[in-house]
Design a protein around this nucleic acid. Sequence first.
DNA 1: AATATTAGTCAACATGGCTGACGTATCGCA
DNA 2: TGCGATACGTCAGCCATGTTGACTAATATT
Lengths: 187, 187
Amino acid sequence: MVDLKSGANPLFLREEELRRGIELMFYAYREFTSEPDRILAEIGFGRAHHRAIYFIGRYPGITISELLVILRITKQSLSRVLSQLLEQGYVAQTRGKRDQRQRLLTLTETGRALEMRLTDTQRRRFAAAYRSAGAEAVAGFRAVLAGIMDPSDLDRIERLHPNAAEEEEHDRGDPSKQADLAAKTGR
Amino acid sequence: MVDLKSGANPLFLREEELRRGIELMFYAYREFTSEPDRILAEIGFGRAHHRAIYFIGRYPGITISELLVILRITKQSLSRVLSQLLEQGYVAQTRGKRDQRQRLLTLTETGRALEMRLTDTQRRRFAAAYRSAGAEAVAGFRAVLAGIMDPSDLDRIERLHPNAAEEEEHDRGDPSKQADLAAKTGR
DNA sequence: AATATTAGTCAACATGGCTGACGTATCGCA
DNA sequence: TGCGATACGTCAGCCATGTTGACTAATATT
């Protein structure tokens, strides 16, 4: 019953530590989505719209099928939100040059503005958390989450954003992103 | 255009870094819930059932209103899943001694077994991620997520599990948890 | 005795997942 | 050249889980 700092009942500690991690994920994720959700609700959109806008903004010229791989939802589910985003002028479609069956998606100016407004709240939240936790903590945060993710997702985003942490080319205006995506996904 | 390791276009780096964080949350959270979701689907339950079971298991003797504060859903939503869990024998209810209006919730043996089965998949995932990332990374992970959470949630879980990382009393069989919760929440 | 708190219930609605089925244009290859 | 595979669209319906609003009942508190 007497216990010491080091290793007293490691199983209990371990259990408690793991449950803490699980709960942190739950609480943090909810908070992470709360502000965008509020903004989206104002304009009659939902979280699904944010996801689509986010990744189209991230990968301009992305195709429908690439977006489906990222989101892991059915094309019917995606179609529902995407057609609203198209109708209401947040997203534009052009046919693929190389492959005319493809629909290349990009944000319009309006879409980009909304994306900024939504993602800004999340960026701010992360920036504050990073600032108060410190650079080393950020590395740890990334390492743990990377360990939790699906390896195939991790693979993909690393192909798409190679060594972003030590990126060599900056301030390019990015007309190249579209070609990049096609090349890097190899499809 | 020439660039250096240190501080070349810090705004670009910062933007990229923050977006990486956002994406990690998205991908990791999805993976984190995927295995429990699969198990739940087998028995006709959903993620909402897992949440209820999880927190009832975590805080045996919790009341409905305390659970509502944790989950932040309406009582109607909770009632739907809770009544299924009661009917199917995963959760038991007893009236509060001090306040007869309260319903104190606990897991039955069946409920505890399901909770274990579900949470085990998440524990395993975290354990693997922790192991490969290292102890320091875990501290960083926690610091960042704590910075993202709602401060009031953070407050509450710290009142409920004071200094769990350096817990002094171990291996108590926990008949005391119920009283603890009531006392610590002060309600 | 009046008021506040805790919980339960009924009804209706929205979002965003899902399956299944079917249609069309285009590409690539045998 | 023509045919199968691929990329995308669409219609219809189901389910889980969130929401609001209205109302009841039991119990506690002041």
